[in-house]
Amino acid sequence: MTCRPSFPSCLKGTGGTPIVRLFASALAAGALLTTTACSDGDGGGGGDSGASDVAASSAAEKSPTASPRAARQTPTPTASGRLTAAGAQAALVTEADLEDDWTQVRDAAAWSDTLLIGTVDVADFLTAKADAADCQKLLDALYDDDLLGEPSGASALRGFQQDDSRLLHQVAAYDRAALDASLAWLKSLPVKCDQFTATNAAGEQRTVQVTETSVPQTGDARQGLHVTVQGTAAGAPATLTLDVAAVRVGSDALTVTTGGLDGDEDDSFERAVTRGTQRLTDVLAGRTPTANPAAFD
C-alpha cells in the first residue's frame, strides 16, 4: 500500500512485504519492535510542547499555548470549519486528557510490530474467497496506520506509551463519500474476518481474530474493532491485542488504537475517543481545545 504523504516512505521486508509503521507494544527484550520509541525530552505533560511527535501533512503552525482564560478566547486556525494542519495538531489528545501514566513519545510514526506482518491464507475462506482480500486489506491498513484510507487534506498523529502498552491518536480530513465507505467497510469486518490465519516470510503462522467493540456515543458516526493476533515473538508465544475506533465529525475523522502485548486498555481507549472527538469538534468550531481531566472523575 502507499504511505500517506505525511509519513516517511514505507520500509520493505523480505520478499517485498511492506513493513509500515504500526502502533503496538514491545516485548521486554525489545525484539518485537523494529523501532524504539523515545520519551519526550521534557519528561511529561504538555502534549503540545515543541517536542511533539505530530506528523502533519504540511508544515504545521503551533497552536497557541496560553493560560486557560486566554485559551478560551483564542480561536484555532480552523474557525472556518475546514481542518488545517494546525487545527489537526490542536485536535490531538495530550497526556492531561488521558491521565494515568501515559507518556508522549517522539516517533510514533515509526512504530511497527512483526506480529502484524503476513499474508492471509485464502484457504480459510472456503465459500467467500473475496473476504480474504478484505482481511488482507485490514492487515495492510493496520500496517499503514491507514484504516480510513488516504486523507484528502490535513492529517496529524500522536503516540503515547505506558509500560508495554501504546496508544496512537490520528486526526485527518477526508472525502466524505470515501469516509462513509471506509466506516461501512470496518463495520463488515467482524463478519468477513472473524478468524483467519496469516503467514510471514519465514513460514510462521499467526491466528487473527476480529470482533466488534463498543465505542463511546460521540461524533456523527463511529465504528470499533477488537483485533487479536496470536503467534510467536523472540521464540515465545505472544498475543497482540488492539482496540481500534474510528469516529467521523463532519467530513473529518479521528482514529484511536490502543493495546499491546499487555492486553486491553479499555479506560484509556474510551478517554482518548471521547476527548479526541471533543477536541476535534472544538477545533472545527473555532475554539481552542483544553485538557479536561475532571471529565474522568
Score class of each variant (00 low, 15 high):
S155H: 07
A156T: 02
A156F: 06
L157A: 07
L157K: 06
L157W: 04
R158D: 13
F160L: 06
F160C: 02
R166T: 15
L168N: 11
Q170A: 13
A172D: 00
A173D: 15
A173L: 15
Y174C: 12
R176D: 11
D180F: 03
S182K: 14
L183S: 11
L183R: 07
A184D: 10
A184M: 07
S188H: 11
L189F: 08
P190W: 01
P190Y: 02
V191Q: 09
V191K: 04
V191Y: 03
C193G: 10
D194F: 15
Q195G: 05
F196M: 06
F196E: 09
F196C: 08
A198H: 03
A198E: 01
A201D: 06
A202H: 15
A202T: 15
A202P: 05
G203F: 01
G203A: 01
E204G: 02
R206V: 15
T207C: 06
Q209K: 10
V210L: 13
T211A: 11
S214M: 07
S214E: 05
P216D: 04
Q217G: 05
Q217W: 01
T218C: 05
L225S: 14
L225M: 09
L225A: 10
V227T: 13
T232A: 10
T232S: 08
A233W: 03
A233K: 07
A236M: 12
P237S: 03
T239W: 05
T239P: 02
L240F: 08
L240P: 05
L242W: 12
L242T: 07
V244R: 09
A245S: 13
A245Y: 06
V247K: 00
G250V: 08
D252S: 14
A253W: 01
A253F: 05
T255H: 02
T255Q: 06
V256S: 01
G260W: 08
L261Y: 10
G263R: 13
G263L: 10
D264M: 13
D266K: 12
S268M: 05
F269D: 01
R271D: 02
V273I: 14
T274F: 00
T274L: 00
G276C: 01
T277H: 00
T277F: 00
Q278N: 12
Q278L: 15
Q278K: 10
R279F: 02
L280V: 12
T281M: 14
D282H: 14
